[in-house]
Lab assay of single mutants.
Amino acid sequence: MSIQHFRVALIPFFAAFCLPVFAHPETLVKVKDAEDQLGARVGYIELDLNSGKILESFRPEERFPMMSTFKVLLCGAVLSRVDAGQEQLGRRIHYSQNDLVEYSPVTEKHLTDGMTVRELCSAAITMSDNTAANLLLTTIGGPKELTAFLHNMGDHVTRLDRWEPELNEAIPNDERDTTMPAAMATTLRKLLTGELLTLASRQQLIDWMEADKVAGPLLRSALPAGWFIADKSGAGERGSRGIIAALGPDGKPSRIVVIYTTGSQATMDERNRQIAEIGASLIKHW
């Protein structure tokens, strides 16, 4: 067993022997301040990774656009098919120029040779490549099948209805392509620590998230040296922004954090800054 596999296998073990965790309302004060600064709703939840206990939450059962955070769930569904012998990570998928959609920095470079399922998941999570996500959605049967996968996990809230990039439209009061912070946090925890996926697939999923290259201005910008984070960000229309993450000190994750916002007129930089400040408060009061 590799060191990384050992780390993920012992996530519940280490967490069980940690000192009790206590909620700190100071972080919620910052979440509410972010709402004021952005002029928009902000949803927040913080779960203990081992027990699933909610440590703090704000608007945990209000719907927010998922945006690209759905790509972690998508690759979880792909990995479940791999575990069941219905898919192979090494299978190569070929596609054409007509398949390319807006923001496809990886797939646009491989029109000639195609990409493997493993490479597509890596591109979808680490670079948020939209064509990679659409190609992977095709392998599982489309958005409705991802929703069905989530329902089978016990998540009857999260739903995907459309493809990239239309799913980022974020129309107010439109339930399409949305989740709730509580539902997303619980589902992410199941994917990373539950028995739904094999140990190898859980490790692969967290490795992809740990290698995320496009979430630097968010929670990662607030992390002290030595902290662990595996995350996936999302951005959408109407001032929408979000991030889902597993993080913790001492090089291992111990909490799940989900943050979503929508309806702001603020710039992307300002949305990023507010999420980073929430992260800084979380870490300060850990």
Rank of each mutant, 00 (worst) to 15 (best):
H24N: 09
H24A: 09
P25G: 10
T27D: 04
V29Y: 12
V29H: 10
V29I: 10
A34K: 03
A34I: 10
A34E: 03
A34M: 10
E35Q: 13
E35D: 05
D36M: 14
R41C: 05
G43P: 00
G43M: 00
S51Y: 12
S51N: 11
G52I: 03
L55T: 10
S57Y: 07
P60A: 13
F64Q: 03
F64Y: 13
P65D: 01
M66F: 08
M67Y: 01
S68D: 00
T69A: 03
V72I: 09
L73T: 08
C75G: 11
A77Q: 06
V78F: 05
V82L: 08
D83V: 04
G85K: 07
E87H: 05
E87R: 03
R92M: 10
I93Y: 09
H94D: 06
S96V: 12
S96W: 09
D99F: 11
L100Q: 10
L100T: 12
L100F: 09
E102V: 07
Y103E: 04
S104L: 01
S104Q: 02
P105H: 08
V106H: 15
V106Q: 15
T107P: 01
L111P: 09
T116S: 10
E119L: 03
L120D: 00
C121N: 02
S122F: 13
I125Q: 03
M127C: 08
M127S: 12
S128K: 02
S128D: 03
N130C: 11
A133T: 08
N134M: 01
L135R: 04
L136D: 00
T138R: 15
T138W: 14
G142V: 02
G142H: 06
K144V: 08
E145T: 09
T147K: 06
T147C: 06
T147P: 04
F149I: 15
L150R: 02
M153I: 09
G154V: 04
D155W: 00
V157Y: 15
D161L: 03
R162H: 08
W163L: 08
W163G: 08
E166K: 13
E169P: 06
N173E: 08
E175A: 13
A182E: 07
A183Y: 15
T187E: 04
T187P: 02
L188Q: 02
L188K: 00
L188P: 00
L192T: 13
T193A: 11
T193R: 14
G194Q: 09
G194K: 07
G194T: 10
L197Y: 05
L197G: 05
T198G: 07
S201W: 03
Q203V: 06
Q204T: 08
I206A: 10
I206Y: 13
E210D: 15
E210L: 12
E210A: 14
D212E: 04
D212R: 05
K213I: 05
V214L: 14
A215Y: 04
G216S: 11
P217F: 07
L218H: 03
L219M: 07
L219G: 03
L219Q: 03
S221Q: 13
L223D: 01
P224H: 13
A225M: 06
F228D: 01
I229P: 02
A230N: 00
A230V: 13
D231V: 04
S233T: 08
G234H: 00
G234V: 01
G242L: 02
G242C: 13
A245R: 01
A246Y: 07
L247I: 12
G248P: 01
D250I: 07
D250L: 06
R255L: 07
V257P: 00
V257Y: 05
I259A: 05
T261R: 04
R271Q: 13
R271T: 10
R273A: 12
I275H: 02
A276V: 13
I278H: 02
G279A: 11
S281L: 07
I283D: 02
K284V: 12
